[in-house]
């Protein structure tokens, strides 16, 4: 099951990258379709971030002592100011490791 899932994912990814290059799309894409394409990465990655921050656990909201959430806010600010991937990761990770290992809320 896992092998077939990996291969299917690989096949789909390859087709996404190859089909436009193959020249088999004769017609120009509709503007609506083209417009929605640019939203896809944001629309897919945002829910994953939200999920990774463990805001909801056992059907409860988990906000005030959530180190991941605070570190994510710091990372977001760094990303807005610097637009630098490495700086965002390093400062976000450092603040998370410091907060969680020192247990600053306990």
């Amino acid at each position: 099951m896992i092998w077939s899932t990996i291969i299917l994912c690989g096949l789909i990814t390859f087709l996404i990258r190859f089909i436009p290059l193959s020249g088999m799309l004769s017609r120009e894409l509709s503007p609506l379709l083209k417009n929605s394409f640019k939203y896809i990465p944001l629309a897919v990655l945002t829910p994953i971030i939200v999920n990774d921050l463990s805001i909801i656990q056992n059907n409860n909201f988990y906000l005030l002592d959530n180190y991941k959430l605070y570190a994510a806010i710091i990372a977001t600010v760094v990303a807005i100011i610097s637009s630098n991937i490495l700086a965002t990761i390093i400062l976000g990770m450092t603040s998370f490791l410091v907060m969680s290992n020192l247990n600053i809320f306990l």
């Binding site: 939203y39 990465p41 944001l42 629309a43 990655l45 945002t46 829910p47 994953i48 971030i49 939200v50 990774d52 921050l53 991941k68 570190a71 994510a72 990372a75 977001t76 990303a79 807005i80 637009s83 630098n84 991937i85 965002t88 990761i89 976000g92 990770m93 998370f96």
Partner: peptide, 29 residues
Amino acid sequence: QFIIPLTFIAIIIPMIKSVSTLFVVLSSA
């Protein structure tokens, strides 16, 4: 593992350049 959401944050923030992209992020979140 926390590097993963951080990397995604670093990727998506520069993509939020207009009202509609902001709405995409807020509504999907």
